[in-house]
Design a protein around this nucleic acid. Structure first.
Lengths: 151, 151
DNA sequence: CCGTATCCCGGAAGATACTG
DNA sequence: CAGTATCTTCCGGGATACGG
């Protein structure tokens, strides 16, 4: 039952770990020596940020949005956080900021190809969650029950 | 050039936004009324957490690890954060904790099917990042140059 | 060995007022 | 309208020591 060796032949039909992919990823990493600051995790951290996800999905859905539109559509975000998040996403090439020097000022945001591609990844994740979510909720209730019983 | 209407026929060959998927996701959300606390984002937040990702990937790679193993392999994690993250992941059904009441105590962790499935999602994300990362880095340097020039 | 309990600090992020 | 500047608050999370 114990499967401690990554080289074991996998026999489960479902949810098979993709060992090939895994090996490829791990081959790029020196596990012993600290990877200093991993730039990949840096990119991911910014793009998977709570607000960033919403921004990307909104832009994926509406194609073009102004600062004020985003502020209205994303409930609870402050102008500061919206500004910071947009800057990060622009810096990392997920979206493009276009200024129209009119009066009053107009600024539009839209996704790049990279941004749209990433948006699809988020949608995939979203679908994954939707699939497993009922079980997770059920489990949480169960765990809560146990906690209550112990308290 | 402006594509403000989600119903426009898509003509880009690459990185096409999956509108069908998008509509499906958005149909479950009431954008106007605040979604209170979105439980899906709650699950995602915990599972996509900095430490959680590493834990899941490590368990995906090594199959079975003890508390101390994880602590050693995940550079920089404190016992507190490791404990908390493991608890979250166990609560949400990503992994299973097994206690062997020996002396000294032994505790093993391994992924559930859900955990392995999610690990594959993380690997996908990882691959995505690897694909786009060179461009992102290039862009960051460029942005830094501009910033320096302006300062 | 496997964690929990405690203390403590820096930085994330909300609210708000203000400017180009 | 589209943000920035400032202030403050809060808590995530690191270090460490201890308990089962």
């Amino acid at each position: 039952m114990k499967r401690s060796n990554p080289n074991d032949t996998v026999d489960e039909p479902q949810s098979v770990m993709d060992k090939k992919k895994m090996e490829k990823i791990f081959s790029n990493i020196d596990l012993e020596n600290p990877p200093a600051i991993c730039p990949i995790r840096d990119v991911l951290a910014k793009a998977l940020d709570k607000w960033s996800i919403l921004i990307i999905v909104m832009l994926g859905y509406y194609d073009v949005l102004r600062f004020g539109d985003l502020k209205k559509k994303i409930k609870g975000i402050s102008p500061k956080m919206l500004s910071i998040s947009l800057k990060h996403l622009e810096q990392d090439g997920f979206l493009i900021r276009t200024v129209f020097p009119e009066v009053p000022l107009r600024v539009e945001y839209h996704l790049t190809d990279q941004g749209r591609s990433f948006c699809n990844k988020i949608l995939d994740l979203s679908e994954w969650i939707n699939e497993y979510f009922p079980e997770i909720v059920k489990r949480r209730y169960k765990v809560d029950e146990i906690m209550k019983g112990e308290a």
